[in-house]
Nucleic acid binder design. Structure first.
Lengths: 239, 239
DNA sequence: CGACCTGTTGATCGTGGTCAAGATTAGTGG
DNA sequence: CCACTAATCTTGACCACGATCAACAGGTCG
């Protein structure tokens, strides 16, 4: 879930960052997860406050994780893609809700079974700690974005973290957007109209090119990086 | 660092939430930390991007953790009080900066020594995982606050989490504020003028009473809870 | 006691939200 | 496969919340 915008660095003596799915594959834990379960687009996977019976791993598709306020305001906390985990929580209730953005396939595992595995498998413990710390870092970057960045900076940051996430074969600047404008808005703390306007603005400045199939081509990654970091001066408003 | 606004729930089979300091005391790890080190008010403790050589435990005083943008915009990621840890990171660089808000006393421990302790001590590993997950939960609550709450809701949430943090002997509604208005503003994603105005507003509605010594008395906790949750309708704008 | 820092309050402005009207795309069924 | 409908997206006009600029008050410390 979520994305980090920080520069990557070399892992030292603390556990390295792998996806949980990687880790479970790597540590060869057979039969830990159920068979794949399919969810339709827009289907609810779990809800904030519910009893946290299971954790889930995304096999395919995309998921949004979010919190709601009583009057309907929504904050998307992150997105989950294949390899990502959802539903982990310290207490026995889920911390946020999750819905399928596209058709999704998940595997899940009982909470007590995870706890038992963790008791046995040192590598898995390390992987879980690494995952949690990575998520924390992502969340803290997002706090800076939500608290202090303007709409253009938010959009640029979002696109770049998506690019990094999908760590494309180095020079593929083509981003498929699984989520709607409304989802992006609720992730970036904006209205969907502002997201739309800001995309048009970046398009006008030749930084991106929105394509017909809900995907975006990044035409000027360094320019986007300047914007995302808040060096707005460095980017020309050329004709 | 930081605070959680979520309702507390019963810990289940995953590790319980203790402060790291508690855990180290509890697990009886002698000589793990250095002797206490004093920092003056406003003194820098560590800086984002620096080599992460040590982790620190707050013995006394208050610390702000923050990220800066190149043009000086600041987002405070959390505050650290006695018993809290700072400086933990997956890679070898600090993720954010830390400064003493008041005179502060810290103990620290080398990164490799922590890693060695973690290899040996199962309980400490659990405590560290619990700590990280608690911080993640706090950060996600803060994402909702920063992305979707208005100034009044932010202030109310902040005061309530402070109250909960300092888990006062049940009925003490008296909050000493260690930080300035500017710090609160940079934590809540507001300007310091808006923080000041919002405090005056809550004071006008008889929800709080700011005292002379930088502390605030909470006069109507249920009312503040309604505001914090976004049930603004439930609160009267009485004369 | 005076200088400075922190906080309060007022006046004005601007970014982004809201409301609204079209345009485009996707979905559905004949 | 196309026609019709519905959802998503774009763009425009206006508005409001909170930012900025500014003046002043209170508190703190040398």
């Amino acid at each position: 879930m979520g994305f980090s915008n920080s520069q990557e660095s070399h892992p030292a003596d603390l556990p390295a960052a792998l996806t949980i799915a990687d880790s479970i594959r790597h540590h060869n834990l057979p039969g830990a997860f159920t068979e794949p379960v399919a969810y339709a687009k827009e289907q609810s996977i779990l809800s904030e406050g519910e009893l946290a019976t299971d954790i889930h791993i995304v096999v395919s598709g995309a998921v949004r994780l979010f919190k709601m306020m009583p009057d309907g305001r929504r904050q998307i906390i992150g997105f989950a893609f294949p390899g990502d985990m959802l539903g982990l929580s310290l207490d026995d209730r889920y911390l946020h809700s999750a819905e399928a953005i596209s058709p999704v396939i998940l595997r899940h595992m009982g909470r007590r079974q995870l706890a038992a595995l963790l008791e046995r498998d040192h590598g898995l413990r390390k992987a879980l700690l690494a995952w949690t710390m990575t998520e924390l870092q992502i969340a803290q970057d997002q706090m800076l974005l939500l608290g202090r960045k303007d709409a253009t900076e938010r959009l640029s940051s979002f696109l770049l973290t998506l690019l990094q996430r999908r760590n494309h074969s180095t020079e593929d600047r083509h981003l498929p957007l699984a989520m709607t404008r409304t989802d992006i808005a609720d992730y970036l703390g904006l209205s969907m109209e502002t997201v739309s306007r800001t995309i048009s603005l970046l398009k006008g400045r030749r930084l991106i090119r929105p394509l017909a199939d809900h995907s975006i081509e990044l035409l000027n990654v360094p320019g986007l990086r300047d914007l995302a970091a808040g060096n707005a001066i460095a980017v020309q408003l050329d004709p």
